[in-house]
Design a protein around this nucleic acid. Structure first.
Length: 922
RNA sequence: GGGCGGAUAGCUCAAUUGGGAGAGCGCUGCCCUUACAAGGCAGAGGUCACAGGUUCGAUCCCUGUUCCGCCUACCA
């Protein structure tokens, strides 16, 4: 019979493409709501449609794929729902850059044409990350792939918006929000990244209006906002300034005076000068202080974070004409420098100052607080149940350490600004009637979009109403803003399953089983999914949240270009194979620690794939011929041993996967395949396979095939490609490993006796190796040894395993004795645990002796040290009286072992010395 | 400012209940022994960040310190 032959080294390339295509063609990743298995479902954290695969994605999706492949093999109805999100700001940026290169703008194109362009772009380039996920082996149900801008998902968004509005959980109003002057849109609080910088703290003299000789010192980091000041605050109980409350100060560089107010919330008496300028239109704290003290808001910056035009500026701030002439239209950073110059007569001090600077998380532009009309989600009523769900364990966060992180954030959650001043996204389903309002809405100068006044009446509906409530039909204007991308992502676990329709999928797969994600989107996404899931499905969106470590991407932080440690997963897959990358990801996924990925490690696992490959080659070379299956208990010693080990590994891997310990699961597999299966088992069965026709060979071949086939199934979730490729060459049933059962523990494979005997065999082999080392024998030289066992049982084991020991230790003529023959000058004696190994001295090379003596000497020194330590401990009455008995016994055993070993080495040394003298004087 | 996590072999990381710390890569020595040199056998290498404390005994528990990272925050 002919067996397939494999190349000498594993080449992942064609294997990966070939199998992935076949899996897809056969529909193996498809989940059906009518499938009889217990559902196991996950939704993918939708990557940005603009994105491309980075190491973080690779980790995230590898772990998900391991879970879903494992559950699928367990017979569960496994659904992994894939898709992408429309990434409003990022995608719009990409297309706008294209337009810029063509010399046009989105405003020139108009909203409708622009959106067409974005869709075009999405069709052409939006699939990049999806194809990369496929490359990674992701076993998503691609037939169900979704996009947050799909019609179905868009309907879900409208439905949610309308219902939230009905329930009074949405409001529109003029608030100070975070504004990105480059993206020209509002951002939610968590879309602002804070960066610690050293800025300047300016101390400015504000003179009292009625007594210019008296000055109030005011500290600020933003002197340019001085023009928007509408008051100065001091602490009402501050003895230094209390008497000034109610008076006015002259605002420098302007003709305005502003009041001094008392505000105990805003002012920290200890900080700075104890007096704070209040700029309600440009600072969050000042905004609130402005509310408290009924202050005007003066806007001095436009949407681009430039000082408003000279005329506007003069009008609004009453700045001196020459000052307005200089500052009008300047970008805020330049304005600050200018103001610093202009203020020279008023500046008391400029000191370096550590502060946090908010930047747009998409484009890193410094954000500005901007007063504008925006939509908000009233979040507290949604957060309450989401807190409870985690508190009472309906949602488990793993590792649990992040639970407090989540709870802390949720308890202190702020209303969520959901409107974005961009075009790409779900346009807000709200309309306003110009007829009712009494006049046409203003048009935003930049793009012609209507600026809806704060007091315009809102009509919220899923589709454009035919008329307004008063019956006007011709002047309904839709809100030009779109919703935050995360608004639609928050619905992902049920919108992808067809909601608001009550689909069979929704019934079968919601709530999903597990969500695998990085900590970075715990708040952006996870928290919001829980809130929305509870609100609209009445049930948590997932049972377990597994939060994995962060692998920082090239953009930023952990992996930095300057360190040169950026790793591109595509490059890695190219170089080492997808399976090697996946296995690395799994092995590194220890909880609570960031993944710092070293390429050497991936290379190590590439070597592992090659090891597996070559083990398979060995198998195929020896599998020719009849195979006979007998019960496990009747198989050869190596067979019984490997079955028992395999069984233990199956138990470990399954248990660890249940705990989301991908690292332990993968290391158990690694340990088993390489060190038990390849190093030991394959070595042990070589003699049995030599005579192809023997009975021994027939049953061994059976075990070999059976264990390897099982091993491939065990490995498959981690290394889907090589496991399938090899599995196909082995005796097997079925068309693909993807849907074969995951191995389960079999009690008939358990064999403690075989494992114990194996320990003894290993001891003997290791002793011979040690002897070789000490005596400087080359690895290839065949030696004679004699062993001595203390008990009949041991001796019979040694007798039975004599051939095996000789084979593994590469020795000849092992003699097994009853009594130790330690008389000089015949033997060097070594012991470990239960067996002594004796080596005849007679054929030793003269040159060995000096080095041998040194080695032995070294061993003696080490042992003496250890013995002293152990003796000390056992001699301590406190230890003997207080330590648990088993610990004491353990120490006594140790002492015995060490002492015996020492004696033997001492004898060995004497023997060597004896030999030396004999050689020197023949 | 507050909170959390980390500091273990040259490097990247493990070690679930406090009883002499492991892996991979790298390094050293010897081996191309027909599955695999992307390999085999063996070896070196660690006051488990620092200082105290609890304990018969601490990498592990407690306190403090230093350094690093992350999250969070309105100290102008």
């Amino acid at each position: 019979m002919s067996t397939p032959q494999l190349d000498k080294t594993y080449s992942p390339h064609d294997v990966e493409d070939r199998w992935y295509q076949r899996w897809i063609d056969a529909g193996l990743f498809h989940a059906d709501s009518t499938h009889p298995g217990q559902p196991y479902s996950m939704v993918i954290p939708p990557p940005n449609v603009t994105g491309s695969l980075h190491v973080g994605h690779a980790l995230n999706n590898t772990l998900q794929d391991i879970l879903v492949r494992w559950r699928r093999m367990q017979g569960r109805n496994a659904l992994w729902m894939p898709g992408t999100d429309h990434a409003g700001i990022a995608t719009q940026n990409v297309v706008e850059r294209q337009l810029q290169a063509e010399g046009t703008t989105r405003e020139a194109l108009g909203r409708e044409q622009f959106l067409k362009r974005v869709w075009q772009w999405k069709e052409q380039s939006g699939g990049t990350i999806i194809s990369q996920l496929k490359r990674l082996g992701a076993s998503c149900d691609w037939e169900r792939e979704r996009f947050t801008m799909d019609e179905g998902l868009s309907e879900a968004v409208r439905e949610v918006f309308v219902r939230l509005h009905q329930d009074g959980l949405l409001y529109r109003g003029e608030r100070l929000i975070n504004w990105c002057p480059r993206c020209l849109t509002a951002l939610s609080d968590i879309e602002v990244e804070h960066e610690e910088i050293t800025g300047k703290l300016y101390t400015i003299r504000y003179a009292l209006a009625d007594d210019p000789a008296q000055v109030l010192l005011v500290a600020t980091t933003r002197p340019e906002t001085l023009f928007g000041d509408t008051a100065v605050a001091v602490h009402p109980e501050d003895e230094r300034f209390r008497h000034l409350i109610g008076k006015r100060v002259q605002l420098p560089l302007t003709s305005r005076t502003i009041p001094i107010v008392g505000d105990s919330i805003l002012v920290d008496r200890e900080f700075g000068t104890g007096a704070v300028k209040i700029t309600p239109a440009h600072d969050f704290n000042d905004f609130e202080a402005g509310e408290r003290n009924r202050l005007n808001r003066i806007k001095i910056l436009d949407l681009h974070a430039h000082i408003v035009s000279e005329a506007q500026f003069r009008l609004a701030t009453k700045a001196n004409p020459e000052v307005a002439a200089v500052l009008g239209g300047l970008p805020v950073q330049k304005a600050r420098t200018k103001v610093e110059e202009l203020l020279s007569d008023y500046l008391q001090e400029v000191a370096p100052h550590k502060m946090a600077l908010g930047k747009c998380y998409r484009c890193k532009t410094v954000v500005e607080p901007l007063l504008s009309d925006q939509w908000f989600v009233k979040i507290k009523p949604l957060a309450e149940p989401a807190i409870q769900a985690v508190e009472d364990g309906r949602v488990r966060i793993i590792p649990e350490a992040w639970k407090n992180n989540y709870l802390g954030w949720m308890r202190d959650i702020k209303d969520w600004c959901i409107s974005r001043q961009i075009w790409w996204g779900h346009q807000i389903p709200a309309w306003y009637c110009e007829t009712c309002y009494g006049s046409p809405f203003l048009r935003r100068s930049s793009d012609g979009a209507p600026l809806i006044p704060s007091d315009a009446a809102v009509i919220v509906a899923k589709t454009k109403p035919a008329t307004c409530p008063k019956g006007h039909s011709d002047a309904l204007v839709q809100d030009p803003d779109v919703l935050d991308t995360w608004f639609s992502s928050a619905l992902w676990p049920f919108s992808t399953l067809g909601w608001p329709k009550q689909t069979p999928e929704l019934k079968a797969f919601y709530p999903t089983s597990t969500l695998v994600t990085g900590l970075d989107i715990l708040f952006f996404w996870v928290a919001r999914m829980i809130m929305m899931g509870l609100k609209f499905m009445g049930e948590v969106p997932f049972r377990d949240i597994y939060i994995h470590a962060l692998v920082r991407d090239a953009e930023g932080q952990k992996m930095s270009k300057s360190k040169g440690n950026v790793i591109d997963p595509l490059h890695v897959m190219e170089q080492f194979g997808t399976d090697a990358l996946r296995f690395t990801m799994a092995a590194m996924a220890s909880p609570g620690r960031d993944v710092k990925l070293a390429e050497e490690r991936i290379e190590g696992y590439r070597n592992f794939t090659n090891k597996i490959w070559n083990a398979a080659r060995f198998l195929l070379m020896h599998l020719g011929g009849e195979r006979v299956e007998v019960p496990a208990a009747q198989r050869s010693f190596p067979d019984r041993w490997i079955l028992s080990c395999l069984n233990a590994t199956i138990a470990t891997v399954t248990h660890e996967l249940e705990q989301y310990r991908f690292d332990r699961a993968s290391s158990a597999i690694y340990q088993f395949i390489w060190h038990e299966y390849c190093d030991k088992y394959i070595e042990m069965i070589k003699p049995a396979l030599k005579d192809q026709a023997s009975e021994q060979a027939k049953t061994t071949r059976q075990t070999l095939a059976e264990t390897f086939e099982t091993m491939m199934r065990l490995l498959h979730p981690f290394m889907p490609f090589i496991s399938e490729e090899i599995w196909q060459t082995l005796p097997h049933e079925g068309t693909s490993i993807v849907r074969k059962p995951y191995p389960t523990v079999r009690s008939d494979w358990d064999d403690k006796t075989a494992e114990e005997e194996f320990e003894i065999v290993t001891e003997c082999v290791e002793l011979t190796n040690l002897a070789r080392l000490i005596l400087n024998y080359p690895a290839g030289k065949r030696l004679h040894f004699k062993s001595h066992a203390k008990t009949d049982k041991l001796r019979s084991i040694l007798n039975e395993r004599k051939d095996l020991i000789e084979h593994l230790a590469n020795i000849d003529g092992l003699m097994i004795g009853t009594t130790p023959e330690t008389t000089m000058p015949h033997f060097l004696v070594l012991t470990r645990g239960s067996v002594d190994m004796l080596r005849t001295m007679e054929d030793m090379e003269p040159a060995d002796l000096h080095k041998a003596k040194e080695n032995v000497q070294k061993q003696i020194a080490i042992l003496e040290k250890e013995i002293t330590r152990t003796k000390q401990k056992l001699g301590n009455p406190e230890f003997v009286s207080k330590a648990p008995p088993d610990v004491i016994v353990d120490h006594q055993d140790r002492l015995n072992r060490e002492t015996r070993m020492l004696n033997l080495f001492q004898q060995a040394r004497e023997q060597i010395i004896f030999e030396q003298t004999k050689q020197q004087s023949p």
